[in-house]
Every structure is written in C-alpha cells, then in structure tokens.
Design a protein around this nucleic acid. Structure first.
Lengths: 139, 139
DNA sequence: GCTTGCCTTGACGTGAGCGGCAAGGTTTAT
DNA sequence: ATAAACCTTGCCGCTCACGTCAAGGCAAGC
C-alpha cells in the first residue's frame, strides 16, 4: 500500500509517516515511480510508535522498540534495549510524579494562605466548576 | 539600578529581563541615555515571576500576580485573578498527576509482561542504578 | 486535453523561554 | 586616547513533532 493508505489505516497523516522515515524509524521501499510502498509489518511499526507515544514516549524513545520489531521479534519490547527504555521512562515518570506532588502541595499551601488573607466573602465558587476543558499543557 | 544590576540581584540574566519586558510583565522607565532604570519594586516583580516559574507556571500564568503587585497589593496573590490562576493550575496539576499515575501503571504492567516473556537470567541490574541524573524532560 | 487526486522533495512555521551574536552607543577608568 | 564594561535593538538558534504551503511529477476518469 502507499503512504496515503497507510496513513488512513493507522489513523495518522502522510506528513507524520514521512517524518518517521526522516528520523530513521520506518523505511519504505519505492515502487517504479518513486512512491513509497508499505506492507503489514510497516503498519505494525507505526502502531507501535503510536502506542508508545500515547504513553508519553518521545520518538527517539520508541526507536528501540521499532528496531526490535524490525529485527524479527514478535513484540517491540522483546529486546534488552526496550526493557531499559521502559525502566528509564519509569524512573522519569516517578521523579516527575514526586515533583508534581510537591508542586501540588505548595500550590495548596499558597492558595490557603492567599484565601486566608483575602476572604472574598461573596465568592465561594457559586457557579459550576467545569474545569474539564483544561487540556493539560505542561504538567 | 540598571538592567545588569537587577539581573545580578535577582540571579537571572539581562536577556531574561528584556524578555519579560517584551512580554509586558515588567516595564522599566528609561534614563536620559536610554538605559532601563529599575527600583526595588521591579526587583519584587522579578522575584515573583521566578517563584511562580519555579512551581511550573508559564510566563503568561505569572501575569495576574505581577499585575496584582504592580497595582499596589502587598502580595502577588491578593487579587481574584491570581486566586483563579492558582485554582486553574491546581486543576492542571491534578489532572496531570492522574495521567502520569496511569502512565506509570501501564508502564509497570508492560514491563512486567515483557520481563515475563524475556527472562534474561543474567541481568538482574547488577550495577548501581544511578538514575538521579534524569533531568525530567517531558514528564 | 483537462481535472482530480494521489505522490515527491524541500523549506519554513509553530510554542516557550530565553541564549548568543551583531553592530553600535555610553560611561568610566587608566 | 583608549580600553573595559556597560547598555541598546534586532535577529537567528535551540527542542519536538509534525502542519503548511510550494512547485512539480504521475495515474486515472471524463
């Protein structure tokens, strides 16, 4: 299949696929007219990338998994490098959790202090607090 | 004092101070030769910015606090907008904590699965696990 | 032949928070 | 007089994962 077909099947864009190729993650062989040709294995690679990106992996971090799949393994995490990446990511996530927890604590503290200084007697959040639209940016 | 003095006092750079000014956070009046002139109030503004940035606030998020100080309040969080920003940030942090927690769980799960498939009998992390240099990038 | 819809490469834009450099003006010390 | 150490504005660079043109080639239907 060609790049547009793969993009549709994988739910991504041609631009993303070409970008993955430029990063060396996937490599397509070309048909006579120069078009990229993909097979089902390539589809699996893209899916692996998407899954890992969904967990917060950078493209570089997905490389060991993609390489692992390309070297014939059944799953992307059947190789030592992938396991190490899991562990490194886990450590990152844990340290970030610690940091965010302390941030939350200091925020709660600051908020309590500020509220105690600034009573605001008529503003006890009277309306519905629909904060579900926060698209978690940096945190 | 001039921009270099303020930068030194606040432990930042002239480049950062000019950037804050370009974002409309601080405004210096100019002396006869065109140099920026700052006073102790400006120093407090910079300190407020730094404190909030240390908690993970974006520059834009520090704006209510800076405006609050500039409007004469004793603390940057004496104004309603600052309180709202606190609350919004708190919601963001909490949602991010939830997301990271589920990420950690799925990572642990995937790691366990992969390890059960890939015994690796001679690699039980024999060396010291000095993962303290991970500078928490995206997480 | 013309349009439509694929495909190609390449180069620039995005957002955050500055760093670094250029090219010049000002002040102070020697 | 001149060097050192400031200051000014302005513009490019950085990371990341692409989006968005731009300019053109290829294939198929009418």
């Amino acid at each position: 299949m060609r790049i547009g077909d793969l993009a549709k099947r994988a739910g991504t864009t041609t631009r993303a696929l070409r970008f993955y190729e430029s990063r060396g993650l996937i490599t397509a062989h070309r048909s006579a007219n120069g078009y990229r040709e993909y097979n089902d294995d390539d589809f699996r690679l893209v899916k692996e990338i998407q899954t890992l990106q969904g967990i917060g992996f950078s493209l570089d971090d997905t490389r060991p998994f993609v390489d692992c799949l390309r070297s014939g393994h059944e799953t992307g995490d059947s190789c030592a490098d992938s396991i190490e990446t899991y562990q490194r990511k886990l450590a990152e996530v844990n340290s970030c959790l610690d940091r965010l927890t302390s941030v939350r604590d200091s925020l709660l503290e600051k908020l309590a202090e500020a509220l105690s200084r600034h009573p605001s007697p008529c503003e006890m959040t009277p309306r519905d607090s629909s904060a579900s639209e926060t698209e978690y940016q940096e945190f």
